[in-house]
Amino acid sequence: MKEKNRSQSSAEAQLTASSRPRRFFILLNLILGLSACSAPAPETLHGYIEGEFVYVAAPSAGVVALSVAKGEQVQKGSPLFALESVAERDLLDEAARRVAQARAALLDSEKGLRPTEVAALRARLEQTKSALSLAENELTRQQKLFATGAVSAQSLDRRLSERDQQLQLKESLDAELKTAALGARADQQSAARANVKALEAALARAEWELGQKSRKAPENALVFDTLYRSGEWVPAGRPVVSLLPPGGVKGRFYLSEGRLASVKVGSPVQVTVDGFREVISAKVSFISPRPEYTPPVIYSRENRARLVYLIEVTFSPEKAVNLHPGQPVDIRLGS
């Protein structure tokens, strides 16, 4: 019986000794597997999509008529809305007519007399020349007769006076013809030109005021919201449409003070969005110079870890159009 117990104990000891290496390898594999699973992965930061909107307004008031709807994509130069502009159109028409009147007056001042008026002056001049020639002939005859004593000195003086009057009339008509080709005086023409420029400036202002009654998209963008409905009264300077251009779509997240030195403007980041299969590449565009949270104690090594800084990233226009403000995102630093 004792012999049987000894043999049984010997067999158990051999079995235990043979299983020890196997247990060791199993334990080693478990330790290696756990260490592999616990290897540090790139840290994922949590953030959100933010929008920087463009608020489009008009400098004047009026009843609005919308040309776009919320959620619509618009191209640069597309009409957004227009305000009633009856008064502005009337002012523009009045300014245009005043400019036309002033330009006509300027042209008239630069011209001489009308052709019919010049023709009448020339006819009077020819008539005066004929009368002058007759007066000279009469004066010549009177001088010959006076030399023979046939006429008195009084008669000779009368003929001389008539010749001088016709000669002066001829010179006066010559001067009038020259003046007729000159137009108005230089000072009057300068005043007319200044009046034209002043009225043209008023016309340009009227055109600008009319143009401000309707607004167009400054760039390609999403109509994020319409703040008024067609037919409503809009006060001067109040935004009517808010636009979200692709450049206004930004990702925001916060980074601790200890990791701030590893990021700079232009650094690449990878953004993951729920519902997107692909990872979106972005670049850091802004790093806040001030912490978002400052504890009410002095900075120490223990408290510096509590400081976080706002980081903003931008996307390519092709990716930005598919992102929406408020959307949560996961961000990893690096490319």
Rank of each mutant, 00 (worst) to 15 (best):
P115A: 08
A36K: 13
T294Q: 14
Q212W: 06
L83C: 10
A192G: 00
S256D: 07
E3F: 11
V269D: 00
A57K: 07
A147H: 13
D164L: 15
N303V: 08
L83V: 05
R98Q: 06
G47N: 04
V68Q: 13
L244Y: 01
R141A: 06
S19T: 13
G334T: 03
E232H: 08
E52M: 13
A61D: 02
L121F: 09
A261R: 07
F25P: 09
S285R: 11
Q270L: 15
V234N: 00
Q14R: 07
R97T: 09
A13P: 12
R97Y: 08
A181T: 08
L91A: 14
E219C: 13
A61N: 00
E94L: 07
L80W: 01
T226C: 15
I311T: 01
A57G: 11
L307T: 00
Q212F: 04
A150H: 13
S281P: 00
Y299T: 06
E318I: 10
L91H: 03
P79C: 12
L121T: 04
V265W: 12
S281H: 13
V265I: 14
S256V: 05
V240Q: 04
L45Y: 15
G211L: 02
R304L: 08
S109G: 10
R98T: 07
P245N: 03
M1P: 15
K76C: 07
L167F: 13
